[in-house]
């Protein structure tokens, strides 16, 4: 088995909350609390979870757009946490990002050509002519036309704008693309176009994806393996077929059962979780999920479970599997 291209170990992000006006740290928000995973080249890791679970923070930390509090990010065998600011900027050429909001992430005053060219200028790639040629290639690649380069973002629909965002990410020939909710702002009929495009591009360039989303069906469709996050931690991580067909963690089970299935014949037995996700500033003791868990045991409120690898290679963080 080949070495993973990207390996994240015990990644943490803590935000101190100051109060009392004297700069005293009264509490800590554990946005991401010890996340580990690895991805092999050309594969897709999906990260799912509800809002506030830390999935977007995790994505941003891999690019060090948010500086991690603790942890290791091994990319091609090197820990990019040790890179200086300047070296990190260079390293970002290999890791690019696609954002959720295709409306907000494109500068409205720049032409599409300029937007796509920009990362190439930053990384000093080619001369002006070569770059412009590449912009045209990229536009064709994502299903737009070369003449679109002269237009402005507001002249495009949501799906087209997301294609522009993808072209911009591809401009510097990255190895890894972190996609943060790339289709959640799009209509269903357009969403499927963008998902197909991402799959095509992955095959063509042997891209590695980290696909962050809240939509479980979308994640299943695109991912080889999937990590489920709850309150800053991964509660289950496994090969995607396995996870969806036989979820282990009670939270994964509840999450899957909660999705309304677009087929009136399938009436799933919904597991309705009580209450809301607790605040990451005051996570429950022991297992963070125990207060909403339908099968919680005594130990769950006392001891925090660790992510264990089961026999079939799936990883789950739950006392049921001790």
């Amino acid at each position: 088995m080949s070495e993973p291209l990207l390996k994240v170990e015990n990644l943490k992000k803590y935000y101190p909350i100051k109060s009392g006006g004297f700069g005293k740290v009264s509490e800590t928000v554990r946005a991401v609390d010890g996340v580990s995973f690895s991805i092999r080249e050309g594969e897709t890791l999906g990260i799912v979870g509800e809002s506030g679970c830390g999935k977007s923070t995790t994505g941003r930390m891999i690019m060090r757009l948010i500086e991690p509090t603790e942890g290791k990010i091994m990319f091609q065998g090197k820990n990019i946490m040790n890179l200086s600011k300047r070296d990190m900027r260079k390293a970002r050429k290999d890791i690019q990002m696609i954002f959720q909001d295709p409306f907000a992430s494109l500068n409205p005053r720049h032409t599409v050509g300029r937007i796509i060219e920009e990362p190439m200028i930053v990384h000093k790639m080619g001369n002006r002519k070569q770059r412009q040629k590449r912009v045209e290639e990229l536009l064709e690649l994502v299903g737009l036309s070369a003449y679109h380069a002269r237009r402005y973002p507001h002249q495009f629909s949501g799906g087209q704008r997301q294609r522009i965002g993808i072209a911009r990410a591809l401009a510097v020939q990255p190895k890894v693309i972190i996609a943060d909710e790339p289709v959640s702002a799009l209509d269903v009929s357009v969403q499927s176009q963008v998902l197909n495009l991402l799959k095509d591009l992955q095959k063509k360039f042997n891209l590695t994806f980290i696909f962050i989303a809240h939509d479980l069906s979308v994640v299943r469709h695109i991912s080889d393996s999937v990590g489920v996050m709850y309150l800053g931690k991964i509660v289950e991580l496994s090969e995607s077929e396995n996870l969806y067909n036989h979820p282990n963690h009670p939270y994964t089970k509840a999450l899957l059962s909660a999705v309304p299935v677009p087929d009136p014949e399938i009436k799933t037995k919904r597991i309705i979780l009580e209450g809301d996700v607790p605040s990451p500033a005051h996570p429950p003791s022991g297992c963070a999920f125990h207060d909403r868990c339908p099968v919680a045991m005594d130990i769950c409120s006392k001891e925090r479970p660790h992510l264990k690898t089961l026999e079939d290679g799936r990883m789950v963080s739950c006392h049921l599997f001790d």
Binding site: Q160, S189, S192, H221
Partner: peptide, 22 residues
Amino acid sequence: LIQSIPDLYGKKDYLHTIKGSV
């Protein structure tokens, strides 16, 4: 529309799409 939705209980390689946009 029905066919463009990714399936939670099965996997197809490619999704059905409706070309163009609204």
